[in-house]
Computed example of a mutant assay.
Amino acid sequence: MSNTIIKTDFNFPGQESVYKGKVRDVYSLKNDRLLMIATDRLSAFDVVMPKGIPFKGQILNQIATKMMEKTEDIVPNWLEATPDPNVAVGRKCEPFKVEMVIRGYLSGHAAREYKAGKRELCGVPMPEGMKENDKFPEPIITPATKAEMGEHDEDISREDILKRNIVSEEDYIQLEDYTRKLFQRGTELADKQNLILVDTKYEFGKTSDGQIVLIDEIHTPDSSRYFYKEGYQERQDIGEAQKQLSKEFVRQWLISNGFQGKEGQQVPQMSDEYIQSVSDRYVELYENITGEKFIKSDVSNIESRIQSNVERFLS
Rank of each mutant, 00 (worst) to 15 (best):
Gln15Asn: 07
Glu203Tyr: 06
Leu35Pro: 00
Lys163Asp: 14
Thr39Asp: 02
Asn257Asp: 11
Glu311Met: 08
Tyr228Gln: 15
Phe249Gln: 07
Arg305His: 15
Lys192Pro: 04
Lys192Met: 11
Lys7Glu: 15
Ile6His: 04
Gln242Ile: 01
Phe136Tyr: 15
Glu273Thr: 13
Lys262Asn: 13
Glu16Phe: 05
Gly108Pro: 03
Tyr202Cys: 05
Arg281Phe: 14
Asp191Val: 04
Leu195Ser: 00
Pro13Leu: 02
Asp177Thr: 12
Ser271Ala: 07
Gln236Met: 15
Val310Gly: 01
Ser28Gln: 14
Ile63Lys: 01
Asp216Arg: 00
Ile295Tyr: 13
Gly231Gln: 08
Phe136Pro: 01
Gln265Glu: 15
Ser256Pro: 04
Ser279Thr: 07
Asp153Ile: 03
Gly104Trp: 00
Glu292Gln: 14
Ile218Cys: 10
Ala116Trp: 10
Val47Ser: 08
Ser208Phe: 09
Ser256Val: 08
Val89Phe: 00
Met68His: 15
Met130Tyr: 08
Pro137Ser: 10
Lys56Trp: 05
Ala44Ile: 07
Glu80Met: 12
Ile218Met: 05
Glu138Ile: 11
Leu60Lys: 00
Ser28Arg: 13
Asn61Glu: 09
Leu121Asp: 03
Pro139Glu: 03
Gly57Asp: 06
Thr4Val: 15
Ser223Pro: 09
Leu195Ile: 05
Gly57Trp: 05
Arg33Asn: 11
Ala144Met: 12
Asp237Pro: 08
Asn309Gly: 09
Asn309Ala: 10
Glu203Cys: 10
Thr71Cys: 14
Gln58Lys: 04
Val23Pro: 05
Lys56Ala: 03
Glu159Gly: 04
Val98Ile: 15
Ala190Trp: 00
Pro83Cys: 01
Ser208Glu: 12
Gly291Arg: 01
Thr71Ala: 05
Val75Asp: 03
Asp25Val: 08
Tyr226Met: 05
Thr39Gly: 00
Ser246Lys: 00
Tyr178His: 06
Ile6Leu: 10
Cys93Tyr: 04
Thr179Asp: 08
Pro50Cys: 04
Ala88Gln: 15
Gly129Glu: 12
Tyr19Arg: 13
Asn301Lys: 03
Lys293Phe: 07
Ser28Asn: 12
Glu248Leu: 06
Glu80Lys: 11
Gln193Ile: 03
Ala110Arg: 01
Val47Leu: 08
Ala144Cys: 15
Ile289Phe: 08
Leu162Val: 09
Glu263Asp: 14
Thr179Cys: 06
Arg103Ser: 02
Gln193Trp: 03
Ile59His: 01
Ser304Trp: 13
Gly129Tyr: 09
Gln266Pro: 08
Gln252Arg: 10
Lys146Val: 10
Ser297Ala: 13
Pro139Thr: 02
Asp73Gly: 05
Gly14Ser: 08
Ile102Arg: 00
Ser224Gln: 01
